[in-house]
Structure formats: structure tokens, C-alpha cells
Simulated assay, not measured.
Amino acid sequence: MTTPAAPTPAPTKQRVPFWDNARFAAIVLVVFGHALQRLTYDSDAAEALYLLVYAFHMPLFALVSGYFSSSAEPTRARMARVITDLIAPYVIFEAIWTLTQFLVTGRTNLDPAQPAWTLWFLLALALFRLVLPFLALLRGPIWWSLGISIVAGYLPSIDSTFSISRFLGLLPFFTMGWWLRDRDVVARLGLLERRPAWLRTLAVAVLVAAGAVAFALVDVWSDVRLGTWFFFVDAYADLDAPHWWAGGVRLAIIVSALVLMSAFLVLVPRRKTPWSDLGKYTMYVYLLHTFVLYPFRQSGVLRGLEPVWLWIPLVAVASVAIAATLASRPVRRLTRPFVEPRMPWLLRDPALGAGRGAAASARPSR
């Protein structure tokens, strides 16, 4: 009698180091941008660097998030993950921030519809994931998302409540990230292969040129409130641009962000690096770094630092150290109940909420 062959085990998905490297580099930019903000009051160089970072760092996060999102019909497990991975941490950290602000200032505004500081991205990401299956049904989803983003700015009723304005404003980047994977563009064009020296040189030139333009015209950008445009929060009328051409400004900002993030991604290493593993845990850094920076921002210790040419590199190095520390194993172990809560008691099917934290961090990038 013939013994039946043992089933072939399914191949294990391997993480792609490039994406982990990109995640960690992007989260360092987030920390650096927030740490740099107080220096901008006293330094044009800091203001120019701040504008350069804010021109593309959150669009980059939206694009990478879209790359790893699915447009398939929502399953119970994926819907549960929206609750456990995004909504639950949002509620937890919103409560923590409310308490923190009360202890520091004696005042508080308990309004979960208005996210505290960086928490808006959790709500925006939840909305991205919920909308994507519907958006993917349309012809030309990127063009639809681009039109939605531009038109949303004309409507003053669309504001920061539940991060709706940012969700709509950043929707093209998230959609493009999904489209790149859905159409297998990265593999077909060999975008993860070794880049020639001329391309890396061009990427550096693009970023340097953008920084130079930001510095040379820093007063102009301040007058037109360019930094506020980069937030994708306010309607055009609230940005002193109640004109028909205001949508063209947003379009230019979107195109510029795509150019800058492309240059940035060209410079991200493709091989495994000492910080690749840290790129798996960017949510820890995103949610926790504000508590590290809050005392410095509130105390004013970052104001009037001289010489700025020395302090900007120090802040950059500190940003890398903060990101690496918050993504480290001891910090993750201590804060996991808040960042990646296991909540079997919340869902009708307890299995959907049990052990989500470990699974979320361990799943491979594709």
C-alpha cells in the first residue's frame, strides 16, 4: 500500500528589508519634524528643514500603509483588526492625552472627535482601510482619490472632526500605495534592485534643491502659510485662498510630495541593516514619541538655542535615538497593552481579539 505523500508546507513569507528600512526612516522623520518645530521660531534654516520634512513625510506614511493594505472584500478578521489595531489604541491614547493635559495645564477638553496631536493618523488609517474596497471597484481609483482630495478643500464643512479632512486630503497617497502593489509595479519595474550611482546622485540633488528653495524663499512660504497647507487639515478659504485656483495649489503639493518621497525612497537601503528590525514597530514610535517630546516643547527649552547649525544635527541624532529606543524590545514589552491591546473581551468572537498584538508585529512584509 502506497503511503500518501505528506502535504507540502506553505512557503513562509519573507520580510523585504527595504520596506522595514523605509518605515524606520520615515518614523525618524516624524520624530525629527516634531522635535524641530520649536527651533523654527528662531531660525530660517530650521524652518526650511521643517518645511522639507513636512512636504512628504506623512504622505510617505500613507503611501506605505496603502502598499500593505488589501482591497479584497472585508473579512471578519480584518474588520476586527481595524478595531483592535487602530480604534482601541486611539481611544486609549486619547484618554491618556486628556489626563496628561489636565495634569500639566489644569484644563482639558474631552472630545474624542478632535484627535490629540498625532492621533489623527489612527483614525485616518482606519478610514483608509474601510474605504479602499469600495474605491478599488472604480475605474481609475487614483484619479478618483485625487479628485476627492482636491474638491474636499473647497468645502468648508469638511474639517478635522474625526480626521475627515486629513483622510480625504491624503487619500491619493494611500490609494497610490495600494495601486503599486495591486499592479505589481514594484516588481515589474525592478524598483527594489540596486540603484545606479547616477540615480542616487539625482535623488540627493532633488532633496538638496528642495531644501535650498525652502530656505531661499522662507519668508514667502511663511506669508502664504505653506506649512499649514502641508497638514491637509484646513479648507482653502481658511488658508486665505478662497479662489478657484486653490485646488491647483493642493495638486502642486501632492505632485511635489510624490517627487520628494521618490527621491527619499531611492536613498533607502535595499539590504538588511541594523535598524531593519526596528521598522516593524513604527506604531510604538509614532504613539510614544510625543510623550518624550512634550516636556521639551512645553518648557520652551528648545527656543533660542545657539548656534542653530550645531543644534539641528544634535536634534537629528536625538530623533534617531528616540525612535530606536521606543522600538526596542523592553519598551515594546512595557507598552504593548496600550499600543497593541489584546481585547478578547471586547468582541463577540473572543478569538478575533486574542493575541492580536504579537501577530500584528510579526506578520511579514510582502
Rank of each mutant, 00 (worst) to 15 (best):
E193T: 10
G147Y: 03
R188F: 05
F162A: 12
R195G: 03
R194D: 10
W120A: 14
L180K: 08
W178A: 01
R139Y: 05
S149T: 10
F173A: 13
R194S: 10
W179T: 13
S165C: 11
G153F: 07
F162W: 14
G190Y: 13
L123S: 04
Q114E: 04
Y154D: 05
V186M: 04
P141A: 03
R188G: 02
L189E: 09
L123Y: 04
R194N: 08
W178I: 00
V104H: 15
F174R: 04
T100H: 02
R166N: 03
R183D: 01
V151Q: 10
A113P: 06
S157M: 04
S165V: 14
F128M: 01
V131S: 15
G106S: 07
L146I: 02
F128T: 04
P156H: 04
R166P: 02
L123G: 06
P112K: 06
F102V: 04
N109M: 15
F128C: 03
P112Q: 09
A113E: 04
G140W: 02
L125S: 10
P112A: 08
M176G: 02
A124G: 02
F174P: 00
W144A: 03
E193V: 08
W117F: 00
R166C: 01
R188C: 03
P172T: 12
L127N: 06
T175G: 01
L123N: 07
A136H: 03
G147F: 04
L132H: 06
G169E: 03
P141F: 09
A113K: 10
R195H: 10
R195N: 02
L191W: 15
V131Q: 13
S145F: 14
G153I: 15
W120T: 15
N109E: 12
S149P: 01
W143K: 05
R129K: 07
A136Y: 08
L180V: 08
T118S: 07
S163R: 11
L199M: 12
R194C: 02
F174N: 06
R195M: 08
L119N: 11
R166D: 05
L191Y: 15
V131R: 14
I148A: 08
V131F: 15
L146V: 02
R188W: 03
F121G: 06
R139P: 14
R194E: 14
T100C: 10
P156K: 05
G147M: 09
S149C: 04
L122A: 07
A197K: 13
L191C: 06
T105C: 14
Q114R: 10
L122R: 09
V186K: 00
L123M: 07
S157C: 05
W144P: 02
L130S: 06
L192R: 15
T118K: 04
L192W: 12
R139I: 00
G153T: 15
L138E: 02
